[in-house]
Amino acid sequence: MLYFIADLLALGAINAIMAVGLNLQYGQAGILNFTYYTFVAIGAYVGAVTTMGHPPVPASEETFILQWSLPWPVALLLAGVVAGVLGLFMVLVVIRRLRSDYLAIVTVSLGFIVWDLITNYVPLFNGANGLFNVPYILNGATASEITYTLEVFGVAMVVLAVCVWVVRSIFRSPYGRVLRAIREDDVVAASFGKATTSSRVWAFVLGCVMAGLAGALLVFYVNAWNPQGFLAEESFILMAAIVIGGPGNYWGAVLGTFVFVELLSEIERYLPNFGNGALVGAGRAVLIGIVLIVVIRFRPDGLIPERWLRWYRVPAGGGQGGPAGFQSPGAPRRRLGWPRVGQRGEI
């Protein structure tokens, strides 16, 4: 039981990083990325091949590139960077030319191509068999399972804290406002001279970096990775979780992911198998589908809508100007609260 909770915490923190990153892309910048998990996978692979060193004696068993043995923090950063750079390439090619729903199709297609490539081109990351024996980080090799789990949890929390800081700062800054403006109406944003392309590109790349970080942490935690770990479905579920939780609001995104990505799959593991073996998994997917549609229908801004977040806060003291005791007029009076009657969501 204790281990179960620790495991839940560790995976929860890692999933929260993904949620925060994807939410930056979809919730703030309005880019529908249906292949987010591909970037998680890239991070995982990079994290693995840069820490695994040369494979053990029968070298034919696993073939993969690089075979470095970097210290794990370096590998972690590298994973983020590589995922970010790939995200940059992808988004630069497509973002200017496509309307948002075609862009969604392109993201899925690219995800499939990457998946095909990794699965079939064995020298890259050992093909369909994937990588195993990824080294533990910290003192994981000797520590007990539960200690290691908690350690990973700790590291993931630190990374998560940094990511949340970034996303929160963006959310409250003029840059975040530009992103939201583009999301609402990119023609209006352009008509006021806002940098519509570069703003979105940055948000997308930062989201991909976070995916890469999460992927590397995941592979350090579970010590193995293969193509079955990043089927297209994972990205869809992640996206569904964000939409359910409340796109735009990172707390909603984290909550959605925790419940729908993690809790459900954990529960599923502990449920007895009745009927055919796949029944429980299928039930989970059906549940997610139904909740998704019901939420979009009846609560279009998600369970925790964006408007519950404080829109804006001008940091106190950080500069001159403004009369003494001047209260930022834009700061809403309530921080979190139930929406007032008459506030409308998506129309």
Binding site: G30, L32, F34, R99, S100, D101, A104, F236, M239, A240, V243, G275, N276, A278, L279, G281, A282, G283, A285, V286, I288, G289, I290, L292, I293, I296, P300, E346, I347
Partner: peptide, 26 residues
């Protein structure tokens, strides 16, 4: 009817895909 955006409808079709595919499994 509510004039939802295309993206929202697209996400709904993904939800529908989950449902149909997995009902088949069930």
């Amino acid at each position: 009817r509510r004039k939802s955006r295309t993206l929202i409808l697209l996400i709904c079709t993904v939800g529908l895909s989950f449902i149909v595919q997995n009902v088949i499994v069930m």
